[in-house]
Write a protein that binds this DNA or RNA. Structure first.
Length: 595
RNA sequence: GGGCCCGUAGUAUAGCUUGGAUAUCACGGAGGCCUCCGGAGCCUCAAACCCGGGUUCGAAUCCCGGCGGGCCCGCCA
């Protein structure tokens, strides 16, 4: 192959496709058939059929030529000349199957992996900046597993977008206004001995040493229930809400929210989830941005004042559900509502970012449409992109609910997962230090949890089962980690030598090798697609496929025990390790050199 | 009542955007594989596109209608 100096194409499959397309077009042209490259491209199946690396069903072309499909396929076969990166063509029925030049593909793929290393699968930076807002749970208590789906989808999408070249900022929108946080402040600003008995009972056995989200969040469900039957206290909370919304929060309010939030964020950090910025809803009230929005909305095309002085937008023209003929954006008492504050927040995001993405649970679907309607009323042309995911429910039906007591805490899940992982490690390995055991157990546990939640497409509902969430085998995070550790183990052996790994592409032609290389080559497209379509679960699927392919190769083909092929196979193992590692990084699953 | 999402082997999932050949992978089930580079592994087998119409040469995929599950429809967030 020519000059090793030119930078490798980051997408190893591209030259094959370029050549293939050109050759098909040339063949059709030679046959006197119309050959619009865009049309041909849309017909090509580049995932490859059962017979090769790419397939072309010719039914449509044959119909246009008024020739039976299989006859047409044979005619194209006779007219086409495979060369360059295309090695073979064959016809089967109405399908043409193409094979890539394996040696060139291998050369290109391994060279790209070794040259780009941790950046293999990543793209060059693009100019448009983006903001991903996710999680944004009210700071009123610990995360339950249902909420974690938001955090993991958002965090992984952010990783994928960064890999795809997007300059990205992540946001956690902290809702410190409204009833939820008001209830927390209401109860905690009273001395414990003044708490109503049924609320104080929830503090039984509590210790201030608990994580603050658990400790401060303890009375929340009881407070919520209590207020339903105690109108006087409910009024106190309502008054507090009014103070919050008019920028007159008591000093303890923000501190309590921050304290609880710190505990929540600590749990997410164990899962590798972090945020660039925390954006506080109250800041938009304080800065006057919300008042500005209210003022502008009052002059919006479909604005009108209700009987008691509240303001609303007539939304009948926005295609919202029939019942929702108007959206109130300002109360009769002059204060703002959640949507109007969200409008202020989004205007601020539009001012800074070219692309605004919100990860929302399905219960926020209508809110999203309402938000869009208000943005339209303001004459704002831009819209956020919503990534909507379905709930994680508990087996006996229903969402996880803190108030109903059906929630499974993230911390509880992690504790159980770590304990199981520790047992596994102790059963399998000896001679590890206590720190090593803990490190592996933590990585396996968090890897299992992250992978388990990420592997399902966001639009699918998920029922939580402990056994599945804690599985370390099959389609799981630990399975991927295991394969990575196994590849690492091979490369650590003295016989494996050390990088840079030299290889001869024509020695990697066994079926298990060819299949593995093709999968490695696909990685950049998987990343690009999953970022583009906000389908991060396909990265999880890819990591499993790659790990599985590697295990098959490993069992079928000797590496260190082989002869002339040894160096090339070691290089292939190194390429697998790099690619699988990059995929694990995107998933936020910790790489383990040993486990 | 209206709106949005989902329905694929016993269980759980991929494929659906852009229709194409034998529908992916796992758990569970049946049967195999460690004198061998890590058995959290590998090999073989059985097993699925909710129902009914439509469009099409061709439908898991697109359209319509059912049925089943989830969520939403507040001067809450």
């Amino acid at each position: 192959m020519a000059a090793g100096t030119e930078p490798p194409d980051p997408d190893p499959w591209r030259p094959f496709e370029t050549d293939l397309l050109a050759q098909v077009v040339a063949a059709l042209t030679a046959m006197g058939e119309p050959a619009d490259p865009e049309v041909i491209r849309s017909l090509l199946d580049l995932e490859g059929g059962p017979q090769g690396d790419a397939a072309l069903p010719v039914h449509r072309l044959a119909a246009a030529a008024k020739v039976p499909p299989s006859e047409f396929a044979d005619a194209v076969l006779a007219a086409i000349r495979p060369r360059g990166n295309v090695e073979s063509v064959s016809a089967r029925g109405a399908y043409l199957n193409f094979g890539a030049d394996s040696v060139r593909l291998t050369e290109r793929t391994l060279r790209a992996v070794f040259t780009l290393g941790p950046s293999y699968g990543h793209r060059a930076p693009t100019p448009e900046s983006a903001c991903v807002e996710h999680t944004s749970a009210n700071p009123t208590g610990p995360f339950h597993v249902g909420r974690v789906r938001n955090a993991l989808i958002g965090d992984t999408l952010a990783r994928a977008l960064r890999a795809a070249g997007t300059p990205l900022t992540t946001h956690y929108y902290v809702d410190d206004l409204g009833r939820q946080t008001a209830m927390i402040t209401w109860i905690w600003t009273k001395p414990l001995e003044q708490w109503p008995d049924e609320i104080r009972a929830t503090m039984e056995g509590a210790s201030p040493d608990e994580k603050p989200d658990h400790y401060r969040g303890r009375p929340y469900p009881a407070v919520s229930a209590y207020l339903k039957t105690h109108p006087i206290e409910a009024q106190e909370v309502a008054d507090l809400v009014h103070r919050l919304e008019t920028g007159k929060a008591p000093p303890e309010h923000r501190a309590l929210a921050e304290e609880i939030l710190s505990g929540m964020v600590r749990s997410l950090a164990r899962l590798g989830v972090s945020f660039d910025e925390f954006v506080w809803e109250s800041d938009f009230v304080r800065s006057g941005a919300v008042d500005q929005v209210l003022g502008r909305l009052q002059h919006a095309p479909h604005a009108r004042m209700e009987e008691n002085g509240a303001w609303a937008i007539d939304t009948t023209t926005y295609g919202l559900p029939k019942e929702q003929t108007h959206v109130v954006f300002q109360r009769g008492n002059g204060t703002s509502l959640y949507v109007s504050r969200d409008v202020a927040y989004h205007l601020a995001k539009f001012a800074r970012f070219g692309w605004v993405i919100d990860v929302l649970g399905q219960d926020h679907q209508l809110h999203a449409r309402t938000l869009n309607a208000l943005l339209a009323e303001l004459g704002e042309a831009r819209r956020p992109e919503f990534v909507i995911y379905q709930d994680i429910t508990v087996p006996d039906g229903g969402r996880m609910s803190t108030r109903k007591g059906s929630a499974i805490w993230l911390d509880q899940l992690l504790a159980e997962a770590v304990e199981r992982a520790r047992q596994e490690v102790l059963a399998r390995r000896e001679g590890l230090s206590a720190e090593e055991v803990e490190h592996i157990a933590e990585a396996v546990a968090t890897g299992a949890v992250r992978y388990h939640i990420l592997r399902v497409a966001p639009e699918k509902p998920v029922v939580f089962h402990w056994e599945d969430a804690l599985s370390f085998e099959g389609r799981s995070g630990p399975f991927c980690q295991y394969s990575y550790a196994r590849a690492s183990s091979v490369l650590r052996k003295p016989e494996a030598g050390s990088p840079p790994y030299a290889f001869e592409a024509d020695r990697l032609v066994a079926p298990d090798e060819a299949a593995l290389i093709r999968l490695i080559a696909r990685f950049p497209r998987v990343v690009e697609q999953s970022a583009h379509r906000a389908h991060v679960h396909s990265i999880a699927g890819y990591a499993h496929d790659l790990a599985e392919r590697f295990n098959r190769f490993y069992h079928a083909v000797p590496v260190l025990r082989s002869g002339d092929e040894k160096a090339s196979r070691v290089a292939l193992v190194a390429a697998v390790r790099q690619t699988l590692g990059n995929a694990l990084d995107l998933l936020g699953v910790t790489r383990l050199e040993t486990m």
